[in-house]
Simulated assay, not measured.
Amino acid sequence: MSFVESRAAIAEALSTVEGVTGYPKRPTTWTPGDAIVLVEQIDHTLGVAWQVTWRIVLLLSGDEGVAIEQLDELLPLITDALQPLVYVDTATPEAVQTEGGDMTAVVILARSE
């Protein structure tokens, strides 16, 4: 599977989670529940295989308390939806600056071959 096909498949899997819309490319505007799939790093592993680390940015609420509840609810569902495609390594909350003010996001790093 090509990198482009993998990004599309990951975005599609994210979209199966209620309240989440996955995008293989950054949308012009995003709202809470939008998740973009980016290539974080590509490593050449043993033999001729390439291992891709994906950076998935899921925008949550601007209210930190609500964002924590969203993360608690969504992370297990997202991990389950992604499991056939990638191995989720980490999930890190971060602040994202938007035109409407700071929003909370979770950055998920996941690996695939």
Rank of each mutant, 00 (worst) to 15 (best):
V96L: 09
T31V: 12
V107I: 12
T45S: 06
V39Q: 03
T92P: 07
I10C: 01
M103A: 14
L38Q: 14
L109R: 12
L75S: 10
Y23L: 04
V39E: 04
A95W: 09
T29N: 10
T79F: 02
Q51C: 03
D72T: 13
V86M: 00
P76G: 02
E113R: 14
P24S: 06
T53S: 05
V39W: 00
G101E: 02
T98H: 05
V48I: 11
A11C: 03
Q70W: 13
F3E: 13
D43Q: 08
D63G: 15
V86S: 00
D43P: 03
V96S: 08
I56R: 00
A49L: 10
I42C: 03
E40G: 09
P32F: 11
V57G: 08
I78D: 01
L85K: 01
P84R: 01
G22D: 11
E69T: 12
A67L: 09
L58V: 05
E64N: 15
D72V: 15
I78N: 00
D80N: 04
G19E: 10
A9H: 07
L60G: 06
S6Y: 01
V17N: 11
V20K: 09
T31L: 13
E99Y: 14
R26E: 15
Q83V: 03
S15R: 02
T21P: 07
V52P: 00
L38P: 02
V66K: 10
T28Y: 13
D43C: 07
P84Y: 00
V96C: 08
T45C: 01
P84E: 02
R7H: 08
Q83I: 04
S2A: 06
V39L: 06
V4G: 07
T104G: 15
P32S: 09
P32W: 11
L71T: 15
V57E: 14
A110F: 03
L14I: 10
S15M: 03
T92I: 15
G33T: 06
R55C: 04
A91T: 09
L59R: 05
V17H: 07
A67G: 07
V4Q: 10
A9S: 09
T31A: 12
L77H: 04
I108Q: 07
T104S: 14
T16I: 10
W54N: 01
A13I: 01
T98R: 03
P93K: 08
L59N: 04
P93C: 12
T28A: 12
G62V: 03
L74E: 08
T90K: 11
E5Y: 01
E5S: 08
P24E: 05
Q51Y: 03
A9W: 02
R55K: 06
L38R: 07
P93F: 08
W50V: 12
A13K: 01
T90L: 08
V4D: 06
W30V: 13
V17Q: 08
R111Q: 14
I108P: 10
Q97Y: 13
Q41M: 09
L82E: 00
S112F: 00
E113S: 15
E94C: 09
G33H: 05
S15L: 05
R55G: 05
I42Q: 07
A35W: 05
V39N: 00
V88Q: 04
D80S: 04
A81F: 00
G65S: 04
A105P: 00
I68H: 08
G47H: 03
V66R: 12
A8H: 03
A95G: 11
L46N: 13
E99M: 10
L38E: 12
A13Q: 00
A67V: 05
A110N: 09
P27G: 03
A11S: 02
H44D: 13
A95M: 12
G101C: 04
G65K: 05
